[in-house]
Design a binder for these strands. Structure first.
Length: 1008
RNA sequence: GCUGAAGUGGUGGAAUUGGUAGACACGUUGGACUUAAAAUCCAAUGGCCAUUAUGGCCGUGCGGGUUCAAGUCCCGCCUUCAGUACCA
């Protein structure tokens, strides 16, 4: 019997499914172990070989833990709400639920053929009502909670209401909106219901507020900060603008400090923790309030009829700034407000009004992206107003400038040009004085921002102090004046939670008098309504605005037709849906008890499984999913719903498998500018300094293809080397040669195009043999470089695929895929098979003869393999254990080992990696139970004990020869023996060695 | 700029606390088997020089240092990848 992997793999996959081999129980005497993969979004393109990398690693670990006697939870599911299905629906009218179901089917088939040990009875789909029922439920819990900074946890909103009723909000220390008004108990009790609800919204952990959001017009929705990359949308790369909208937000900022501290106790990679720390962006400093000087002579306001009348600045204004360097307060020579700062319009003097308004208009026009790209240009405008220095009482000019961001801190800074480079550059540019407050520091060229080596000068009571002492002192003085205090600022913003999309979780929310109301938990789930089309409505409302049955009947407690809305018992429902990260922020808890209809998971299940022991997934989720999930987990922990406040103890980021793209370089005849645009053509003409009238000049409007080729040939113009396009890798052979016909059938528009070289040169001879360019990049359908695992499984088998993905290199590393290399691991599996089979017909042949105790070669091979493989798995060094298996099989083959005592435990070692072949051979050995339940072989040191060592003998650190010596030979005797050796004498050539280093069991080094 | 990771043959990559650099594969070359091909098996394979064998020199991004001994430790650079960025 030969190694028929297709047959074997199908057989055992069927066996595992029928016997529910990997079903995990929520009760067990064994210790628990929870291995989790980041669940995939089921895209229409299916899996490519890059996707299963992490799944294979986690599967190996899960299988290993089962061999080690753990009760292992290893589930899988689908993050099945999302944009692509919706966009497909917009294009085709196909309901996203249908395409999603189809895609899941494909994914499942592809996953199954790789032989994962998932417990599919716990599968979750975020788009399934039985799942999003609980996403909605968690949303309601967030709505009904506020964050008490005194107890440092989320508490029930009813407690807050009681406090308001009893004593108002003066003593409430909450994470809430910045601009809450103070009120007494008496005030509260006479507020009407709408007013009360408005106030409560400012405290709730999820709240509705008009916020400036990232609006993506092309996608027709808002995006969270982590969904924007380089100023454009992560998906599709569309421009993003700032826009004010009423949106649901999550008060994640309440958890900023705990999210930061929590990182200390989890075993995640340093780079990932660092990303989260940066994202949270804690900075310690002070907030300082500067009074704006109300100068009656200069300030004026516009009266109703448009005339200017002299007047003081109405009311008194304060500018609050946040600074990490309050110790430099005597170096302030101006203040800068963000152009969007709300005080700008109030304090600008009439003389400066035109300039300021022009500046604001100019900055508003610049897109986020331009602003980010261009940080060198210094712009700003003087408001004409002055602030008063809290200590010197000197006037400080107030400027606006777009280097100050409205979204960070208070949107205003105290500018200390001698200590901050940006302030310095701004001051230089606008000729603002730069007072020096540092002792013995030259600031004529640049600012001095080294706070560690600072001695403050020219600063009144701070003179002679260092950064630390000065900071402490100045905060003390500011507090005395009531103009400042120590403050910690976080970069982390509250997360926008509304999306103007169809294919997401509907909110369990209806509106009465414009105020949001939660639908009672017992009526969940609120299911997505049917709509005619998935686009926004003509009035610009989200797609759910197209639904005709989308109103809430508070009598019947059900969704009814919009026509019935009467503003008394029937109310409109929320039209936004939740973002993609809603469902993925708690799914790891659902797996613990996936089919529970009464709770998101039972407390028994939650207390048994507690948290994820090993989580494997991509690092791209560092500031999105992995931060939001930690936030929700902490919230659920505060509310007593989950037993731990960090959901994943250990996290590993698998690296990406990259594709090798192929490029062709083309010149196309019909459209002369297709690959060589007119401007590029002009540039070449320019480069050659040919002008109209010159001999070589070609009029671009009168383009002559043949003449152009001649010019290229003569080297008079060149084609820029970036004129390329991706070409499907399946048209290219191993020698990088393109199947020209296949290519031209694929892209008929290039039928008459000619291939050129990478540098734009024409290629000699016929155009039939063409070598493509190669480049390693992300595997993607649009780059035509994807390798489908289906084909690999068909041709080499799942075990080969699993082994090869692991063999490619370290799990965390980015590495290119090269299908050619798979023959190495495939041959290994064939050799493994042969080890258990012999003779003409390759009959199963394993003997009961004990391994030769005397020589012990096979036992030695086995035990050193056990040791190495166990170490490797525990260190997640899967690539080296594949090598170890190869070495073991090579050695046992050479030893002609047929002993069951060796070959049986060997299978258990290999089974996490190549489970199908292991099951088959295990079965042939006579076992009737799955190998997955077999205990992992015990390593026995005694089989590795050596009596001698092949010592490397080196001279001045360079190894020259080796010498076999007994391991128990004492140091001085080794030295004697080595020095007496003939080869040593050859090396020394009569010289006496200065020193001889002998490290018993390791090395001998002779210094001459 | 800042933060994190990494630079080793033609390629992917090994090398535990400093102790025989290049394990294990791919590829390449030569050979066996075959009418032939595929498959399989055997051998060689870091570079250079020498050769009948024995050998010699150089080699882990670059320049220094510590050490009997450095891919590994220290100092100073360079390059690549990833994340992040007017964060006050």
């Amino acid at each position: 019997m030969n190694y028929n992997f297709n047959e074997i793999e199908a057989k055992w996959q069927k066996y595992w499914a029928e016997n529910q081999t990997f079903k995990a129980e929520n009760q067990s005497d064994k210790p628990k172990y929870y291995v989790l993969d980041m669940f995939p979004y089921p895209s229409g393109a299916g899996l490519h070989v890059g996707h299963p990398l992490g799944y294979i690693a986690s599967d190996i670990y899960a299988r290993y833990k089962r061999h080690q006697g753990f009760n292992v939870l290893h589930p899988q599911g689908y993050d099945s709400f999302g944009l692509p299905a919706e966009q497909y629906a917009i294009q085709t009218g196909q309901h996203p639920a249908i395409t999603t179901a189809e895609n899941i089917k494909t994914y499942r088939r592809q996953l199954d053929q790789i032989g994962f040990s998932f417990d599919w009875s716990r599968e979750v789909r975020t788009s399934d009502p039985s799942y999003y029922k609980w996403t909605q439920w968690i949303f309601i819990q967030l709505f009904n909670s506020w964050y008490n900074k005194d107890s440092d946890k989320a508490e029930d909103i009813s407690e807050l209401i009681k406090t308001f009723e009893a004593e108002g909000n003066a003593n409430v220390n909450a994470a809430c909106d910045d601009d809450v008004e103070f009120f007494t108990a008496a005030d509260w009790n006479i507020f009407d219901d709408v007013k009360k609800q408005e106030i409560l919204l400012q405290y709730r952990l999820t709240y509705l507020a008009e916020t400036e959001v990232n609006w993506c017009p092309a996608l027709g929705t808002v995006l969270a900060n982590d969904e924007i990359v380089n100023g454009v949308s992560e998906r599709g790369g569309h421009p993003v603008v700032r826009k004010k909208m009423t949106q649901w937000s999550m008060r994640i900022s309440a958890y900023a400090e705990r999210l930061l501290q929590g990182l200390e106790k989890i075993d995640w990679t340093d780079s990932l923790k660092e990303s989260q720390r940066n994202w949270i962006g804690k900075s310690v400093g002070a907030s300082v309030k500067f009074n704006v000087i109300a100068n009656e002579a200069k300030q004026s306001v516009e009266s109703e009829n448009g005339d200017f009348t002299l007047s003081g600045v109405e009311g008194s204004h304060q500018i609050e700034v946040f600074t990490t360097r309050p110790d430099t307060i005597f170096g302030v020579s101006f203040m800068t407000l963000a152009p969007e700062h709300e005080l700008v319009s109030k304090i600008t003097t009439p003389e400066q009004k035109a300039e300021v308004e022009a500046y604001i208009e100019a900055t508003a026009k610049r897109s986020e992206r331009d602003r980010m790209a261009d940080v060198k240009t210094i712009t700003g405008a003087f408001t004409g107003a002055y602030a008063e220095h809290p200590f010197t009482k000197e006037p400080i000019p107030i400027w606006i400038g777009d280097y100050v961001l409205a979204g960070y801190g208070t949107g205003a800074v105290m500018s200390v040009p001698c200590g901050d480079q940006r302030d310095y550059d701004f001051a230089k540019h606008f000729n603002i004085p730069i007072p020096n407050i540092f002792e013995g520091v030259d600031i004529s060229k640049e600012a001095f921002s080294d706070k560690e080596n600072t001695v403050i000068a020219n600063s009144d009571f701070l003179n002679g102090l260092n950064y630390k002492k000065a900071t402490k002192r100045v905060i003390f003085e500011l507090e005395k004046l009531g103009q400042g205090e120590g403050k910690t600022n976080y970069r982390l913003r509250d997360a926008v939670f509304s999306r103007q999309r169809y294919w997401g979780e509907p909110f369990p929310v209806y509106y009465v008098n414009g105020m949001p109301q939660m639908i009672d938990e017992k009526h969940l789930p609120i299911q997505l309504p049917e709509v005619e089309k998935y686009l926004p409505t003509e009035t610009g409302e989200p797609p759910l605005g197209n639904a005709t049955v989308w109103a809430w009947d508070t009598n019947k407690n059900e969704v009814v037709s919009n026509d019935l809305i009467d503003n008394e018992t029937i109310h409109p429902l929320e039209l936004n849906t939740m973002p993609g990260w809603a469902g993925s922020s708690w799914y790891f808890n659902r797996y613990m008890d996936a089919n529970n209809n009464d709770a998101f998971a039972s407390q028994e299940a939650l207390n048994y499984w507690k948290d994820v022991d090993l989580y494997i997934g991509g690092s791209e989720h560092a500031t999105g999913h992995l931060l939001y999930s930690r936030f929700w987990q902490k919230f659920l922990f505060d509310k007593g719903q989950v037993p731990v406040d960090e959901f994943a103890k250990k996290l590993i980021n698998q690296g990406m498998i990259l594709g090798t793209s192929a490029f062709v370089y083309l010149l196309r005849k019909e459209k002369r500018n297709y690959f060589l645009s007119k401007t590029q053509y002009d540039r070449y003409i320019e480069k050659e300094k040919v002008k109209p009238g010159d001999e070589n000049y070609v009029d671009p409007t009168d383009f002559d293809w043949d003449n152009f080729l001649t010019l290229i040939q003569e080297g008079k113009v060149a084609v820029e080397n970036s004129q390329y396009m991706h070409c499907d890798v399946s048209f290219v052979n191993a020698s990088d040669e393109l199947d020209v016909n296949a290519f031209k059938n694929w892209r008929p528009e290039f039928k008459d195009a000619i291939f050129i070289g990478e540098k734009g040169e024409l290629i000699e001879g016929d155009n039939d043999v063409y070598k493509v360019g190669r480049e390693v990049e992300k595997m993607s359908k649009s780059k035509y470089n994807v390798v489908n695992p289906d084909n690999i499984c068909k041709e080499y088998g799942a075990d080969s695929l699993r082994l090869y993905e692991m063999f490619l290199g370290p799990l965390e590393q980015y590495k290119p895929w090269n299908t050619a290399g798979i023959t190495g691991v495939h041959n290994f599996l064939k050799k493994l098979w042969k080890l258990y089979h012999q003779g003409e017909n390759s009959k199963f042949y394993v003997t009961d003869t004990p391994p030769s105790e005397g020589k012990g070669e096979a036992l030695k091979t086995l035990h050193k393999t056990i040791k190495k493989v166990q170490e490797d798995i525990e260190n997640f060094s899967f690539n080296t254990s594949v090598s170890t298996f190869m070495i073991a099989v090579n050695e046992l083959t050479a030893q002609k080992c047929t002993s069951k005592a060796i070959l049986e435990p060997l299978l258990v070692l290999i089974s996490p990696y190549a489970p199908h072949i292991a099951e088959e051979l295990w079965n042939q050995l006579g076992h009737r139970e799955s190998i997955s339940t077999a205990p992992f072989p015990k390593f026995d040191e005694s089989h590795l004990v050596e009596s001698s060592k092949n010592y490397p003998i080196s001279f001045n650190g360079k190894m020259r020869f080796t010498l076999e010596l007994p391991l128990d030979m004492p140091k001085d005797e080794i030295e004697k023996t080595v020095l007496a050796h003939e080869k040593t004498q050859d090396q020394l050539q009569g010289r006496t060695p200065k020193k001889v280093i002998v490290v018993p069991g390791k090395i001998v080094n002779i210094v001459g």
